[in-house]
Write a protein that binds this DNA or RNA. Structure first.
Lengths: 221, 221
DNA sequence: AACTGTGAAACCTTTCACAGCT
DNA sequence: AGCTGTGAAAGGTTTCACAGTT
């Protein structure tokens, strides 16, 4: 309360902390905004952007208000400006290094996935433990052996694990050892990491099982 | 209030409705339980199962209590029994039909993904719009043309979309037209479906963007 | 008139802490 | 003694509804 009175903040003040639920939706908004921008749309209302993102408009407004006041009452949001604000918030402005381990079908799918590149999250290196893969060209990159890990990791790199479950913990340990502090795990297994490492997971079969649950429920009614 | 007084329920009464957050974790517990069963473990405490599932034990106990009282105080949960209860709840007991559209890298990864088969959710049919793919053998299945959709869909089938974003809505409409009421979408686009169709989505790049956000935050501190 | 930004209410989820069973 | 099952408290998220701005 003592320091903030002299320097009146000029930039719209961002919240100290953005709710996780909001963070998880920012990529959705960003995708919809990119589509709108490609169509030449310059301004969009919360209603229209919400529709394009698959959420409801009150939620969208609340989410965006967490970042600051980037809209104009009576008008809407400027598409380009909002893209750059959300990108900055997500840390996508300064291109960030992504290292992918495991070039089976899933790894290949990820390597070729346009969604990454267009968001400043292009994969920089492909690694595999299988020497038979080494040297192969995938999506314009040469597969390197996992032993080269230390050479491709830079501070702030994100590691992506797309190996079989049986190899995932070992790969995870190697990544952590090389200094990676953010890991995305696609292998269907629980990984143990030190407390300072940020670990997220995607299990391809979980959503299918959730659908199965609902389908099952329908058949009971 | 009038009908329930005569017939005292014998089976542990399940809740009318299981919270979504709980449903989303049941697959995690199931995976951990299968691992334990494979290791020959017969009984497990909430503490141990929670650890193996990557959640905390209070949450796990609350979740399991939503299904009924399947544990024994002072002892823990019977692994085999709990597997069958959760499987039944998720509708995995009676094998359910899954139709996958799009056999690019992601589709191939999904087709070969062991996690489905071991949970009673094996994929039954592979379809693609590209006639060049038709007839190809993938994971023991023959790829069929999308025009054959009506012949492979049965009531209660789940549809999985693993096509490029540009084709997703069209494929979605075809699935709905063929009678599919549960759809899992891997394409990075918002799909429109009738209200009675259950739609879920997995966006491979969203988790990566969330990690980027946290990594970015770290670098600010 | 149109649309954002936001307190307040409603709802859902997690965590706590302990009663109750084996 | 050990561990589950669960009310109650705490925390987080969504929705409502409208004041405020262009």
């Amino acid at each position: 309360m003592t320091t903030s009175e002299l320097a009146e903040p000029r930039t719209p003040r961002r919240r100290e902390v953005i709710p996780e639920a909001t963070v998880a939706r920012l990529p959705l908004y960003l995708r919809a905004l990119h589509t709108l921008a490609d169509e030449g749309t310059q301004t969009v209302s919360s209603e229209a952007l919400a529709e394009a993102s698959g959420v409801n408009s009150a939620k969208l407004r609340k989410d965006l208000s967490q970042l600051g006041s980037y809209g104009t009452r009576g008008v809407g949001y400027d598409v380009t400006h909002l893209i750059s604000q959300i990108s900055r918030e997500l840390g996508l402005s300064r291109r960030c290094s992504v290292v992918l381990v495991g070039v089976g079908n899933l790894g290949r799918a990820l390597a070729g996935y346009g969604g990454f590149a267009s968001r400043g999250l292009a994969i920089d290196a492909l690694l595999d433990a299988d020497r038979a893969m080494t040297g192969e060209q995938i999506a314009g990159m040469t597969v390197r052996h996992i032993d080269d890990l230390a050479q491709v990791v830079v501070p702030g790199s994100i590691g992506v694990i797309a190996t079989p479950a049986s190899a995932a913990q070992e790969v995870c340990d190697l990544l952590v050892g090389a200094g990676v502090t953010s890991i995305l795990n696609f292998a269907p297994t629980v990984l143990n990491v030190p407390a300072d490492v940020d670990l997220r997971k995607v299990d391809l079969s979980i959503e299918l099982q959730i659908l199965s649950f609902h389908e099952h429920r329908k058949s009971l009614a």
